[in-house]
Write a protein that binds this DNA or RNA. Structure first.
Length: 464
RNA sequence: UCCUCAGUAGCUCAAUGGUGGAGCACCCGGCUGUUAACCGGUAGGUUGUUGGUUCGAGUCCAACCUGAGGAGCCA
């Protein structure tokens, strides 16, 4: 007997009506009386369960089956019957049930709602719950949608390195990569650690961004993107930070900051539209149980044109608001979380690009504007999350770039390869980074990054 | 790293400084169509840890541990 996936039954239920089929999956709930048992199984192929009806008269192992524990794996042969008047669209009337793998009474997931905190402690099992089943299927679909978006537009996907020797992004603390014996470190004559003895002959780290290497590829392929894991050793304890997270980083040659914003806006809308059409069941679940109003908010994003204001305008708006912020607003200071939220949630109530930040608070590679005090940076702020995208037009002028590096105490000779890109046809180019998890949080309404990553790595937590 | 809050049965939570309970789950039994099924019963506890105050501490105090929320840092 060939096994049918539950997703196929949901998609083609009329075709299977009345036919004898085989299914297999794990028991989610089991309700037994002395003549009937109702078993709901989930086979992992879709969010929904399949209800199986077992009649004592038909099943010789009825007593055994009706005592099975939740999460036991079973294989069932039965007749599919449409039940339009029932809560479920159809059910399987079992003629034969086999136990594929038993479970145990101490299975930690019960037939009731658990707290997200509790489920975090059983991350190896939580994917079997409704919420995490929906979250991680959506994560998979969103990941695919990102590749589709860029591939459809001719972008080349570049696998930027995970291990890097350049600590230049200034993007937080780095995880060190070494093969040295930490109990017997080689010393130089100056009594410092001799990294020439290390695997790469110098200090190495886990990457914090693939941007610099993506730039190199953009100047060969024109439009490229990298999508991979990045690492920050920050001691951050928030719902929005993890030590290991994924970033989407497109980089486009012959593009300026406006092209950059256009692409970012188009991408955000594409991704939302994609999951709304391809994950209807999961999105309905999020809208009902996780974040009421989610659908309205996402539809609103699709229909609205993202606001675009400069940093200077943003500061003026904040000063004019008369609101009493815990951090004072002043030109030259970076916008605080409360400022960003006020702009996107109170003033505009939709995504807002803030551009042209003071050069002193931004990275060295951002292109200096003609006013000599700001750079062509852009951050996308969204209601509920805050900053979701950070990007810029890159400094393509060799001398300006060297000057910016020196000002931020980065030795130009340590990044000669990056400077070379400006020497050899280094045209104007721009790119941005999207925090994949933050996008996923925005789309699902989930409030904690630890519930968006299959096995999250955060401070003091690398279980599983 | 800083601030705030919390920790009681497997889970979710009660308990005025005075005999630690309930619902669900588990286990046993009942029930002929259930939908987080329903009904009855059994069992389940060093109240996060250590110390202190008190005749008496789950409750008050201190430190630590763990978790959560917010901030900083950032995506």
């Amino acid at each position: 007997m060939q096994h049918i996936n539950v997703v196929d039954i949901y998609e083609n239920k009329e075709q299977y009506d009345g036919s004898l089929i085989g299914v297999r999956g794990w028991i989610r709930t089991l309700r037994a009386s002395n003549a009937f048992a109702f078993i709901e199984i989930n086979d992992g192929t879709c969010f929904q369960n399949l209800q199986i009806v077992v009649e004592k008269e038909k099943a010789e192992n009825f007593d055994f089956i009706s005592k099975l524990h939740i999460s036991s794996a079973i294989e069932v042969i039965g007749k599919l019957i449409l039940t339009p008047e029932g809560k479920q669209p159809f059910e399987l009337n079992a003629s034969d049930i086999m136990l594929a793998a038993g479970s145990s009474a101490d299975y930690p997931l019960q037939k009731k709602r658990h707290s997200l905190e509790y489920l975090r402690e059983i991350a190896h099992l939580r994917s079997r719950s409704n919420t995490f089943s929906a979250v991680f299927r959506l994560r998979s679909v969103l990941s695919y949608a990102i590749h589709r978006f860029f591939q459809e537009r001719g972008f080349v996907h570049v696998h930027t390195p995970i291990i890097t020797a350049s600590d230049c992004e200034g993007a937080g603390e780095l995880f060190r990569v070494t093969t040295l014996d930490l109990n017997h470190l080689p010393q130089t004559k100056e009594q410092t650690i001799d990294y020439t003895e290390d695997f790469f002959g110098k200090e190495a780290y886990l990457t914090v961004s693939g941007q610099l290497q993506a730039e190199a590829f953009a100047l060969a392929f024109q439009n490229v993107y990298t999508f991979g894991p990045t690492f920050r050793a920050e001691n951050s304890n928030t719902t929005r930070h993890a030590a290991e997270f994924w970033m989407v980083e497109p980089e486009m040659a012959f593009a300026d900051i406006n092209d950059n914003m256009d692409m970012a806006e188009e991408m955000i809308k594409y991704l939302i539209n994609y999951v709304l059409t391809h994950c209807k069941t999961e999105m309905a679940f999020f809208n009902q149980f996780i974040d009421p109003g989610l659908m309205d908010r996402l539809q609103n994003i699709l229909q609205s044109e993202f606001e675009r204001i400069t940093y200077t305008q943003a500061v003026a708006l904040l000063e004019k608001s008369g609101k009493d912020f815990s951090y004072p607003v002043a030109w030259g200071c970076d916008l605080q979380t409360e400022h960003e939220r006020y702009i996107t949630e109170e003033i505009y109530k939709k995504p807002v690009f803030v551009t042209d930040y003071p050069k002193d608070i931004k990275a060295f590679y951002m292109r200096q504007n003609d006013d000599n005090i700001t750079v062509a940076a852009m951050d996308l702020l969204v209601p509920g999350i805050g900053e979701i995208i950070g990007g810029s037009q890159r400094e393509e002028r060799y001398d300006y770039l060297v000057a910016a590096m020196e000002k931020q105490h980065i030795a130009p000779e340590s990044m000669q390869w990056y400077l070379d890109l400006r020497k050899y046809g280094g045209c104007r180019h721009a790119g941005f980074g999207l925090g994949f998890e933050r996008m996923l949080m925005y789309i699902t309404g989930m409030k904690n990054i630890r519930d968006i990553i299959p096995f999250a790595r955060t401070v003091n937590n690398a279980e599983f």
